[in-house]
Design a protein around this nucleic acid. Structure first.
Ligand SMILES: [Zn+2]
Ligand SMILES: [Zn+2]
Ligand SMILES: [Zn+2]
Ligand SMILES: [Zn+2]
Lengths: 144, 144
DNA sequence: GCAATAATGAGATTGGATCTTGTTATTGTC
DNA sequence: GACAATAACAAGATCCAATCTCATTATTGC
């Protein structure tokens, strides 16, 4: 993701926190800035905890709380990969993508597809659903 | 699902177990028959444990092992709904479907969509992936 | 600056899932 | 059918991500 997109994300996250009546404590600030600066695809909460403690502080509880808050504010996607560990990534409408898992190696690749997105929108409309989020995960082995 | 489809599923599950060199112990047999007879959409392991203990036996460990085995044999889908509880359902090619969560009520509905499935196949081909499984989850609130 | 109160940190706790170990059951062979 | 080999099982201990508790600290409006 481009640097300016990350700055925009950070500003928007702070704005939403403020307008939700939340204070800007050190943990919230630190986690948001870490995500904006070094956030990767599919970070686990533990990844963030580790990165934070390498930088000085923020308790595990705080990291979990901030990630949850950012998710509720719509600033983070939460992806459950099936191994019992929730993973997060910055929610940027311009960078919307999904993930494919190579089951032989565990390697994860990302992809985008307009037809897929269109069909998801159509399904939601058919079901009478105002879509807030959706997940798509492909799993397979490299075709020989 | 139709009764004969369930019988077919049960027979196929037993066949795959056998051809994988596995014996038919009481736990495996009981869990498979329970799933074939009373299996529902999105059953948690605990659901199965409860159903089993209501019928007499099978330890928690055994239920987890059997569910895992059936998943590895391709007889069960495993869906991670995001609440930290893995959920299972019978894998029947004729009954392939996905789930939509009403975030207001927690209610889950199922849907099928040929366009969606076609786009997933196309994406897998593009990525050079021999697809073994895929998940799609929609989340939203009822459109007003 | 002060009071009100939201946010944080540290550790305890929860709960789903897995692991360990001694026991039991299944299967092929005689 | 009895037997030995060994796979499967049961029960409880254990693991670990995630959450909760509550005393302490920091932020904000006044
Ligand atoms: Zn990603
Ligand atoms: Zn999408
Ligand atoms: Zn289902
Ligand atoms: Zn599908």
């Amino acid at each position: 993701m481009a640097d300016d997109a990350r700055e925009k994300w950070l500003a928007e996250a702070k704005r939403r926190m403020r307008s939700a009546g939340m204070r800007s404590g050190q943990s919230r600030t630190a986690v948001m800035e870490l995500l904006a600066r070094d956030g990767r695809c599919l970070m686990s909460a533990q990844d963030v905890v580790d990165a934070m403690s390498a930088r000085g502080a923020s308790s595990r509880a705080s990291v979990y709380r901030v990630l949850d808050t950012l998710h509720e504010l719509g600033m983070l996607h939460r992806i459950d990969s099936g191994d019992g560990v929730a993973r997060f990534e910055i929610a940027d409408p311009d960078e919307h993508h999904h993930h494919a898992v190579n089951e032989a190696t565990g390697e994860i690749t990302t992809f985008t597809d307009p037809v897929l997105e269109a069909s998801i929108k159509a399904i939601a409309a058919r079901l009478g659903l105002e879509l807030t989020s959706h997940d798509v995960i492909l799993r397979g082995t490299p075709a020989r």
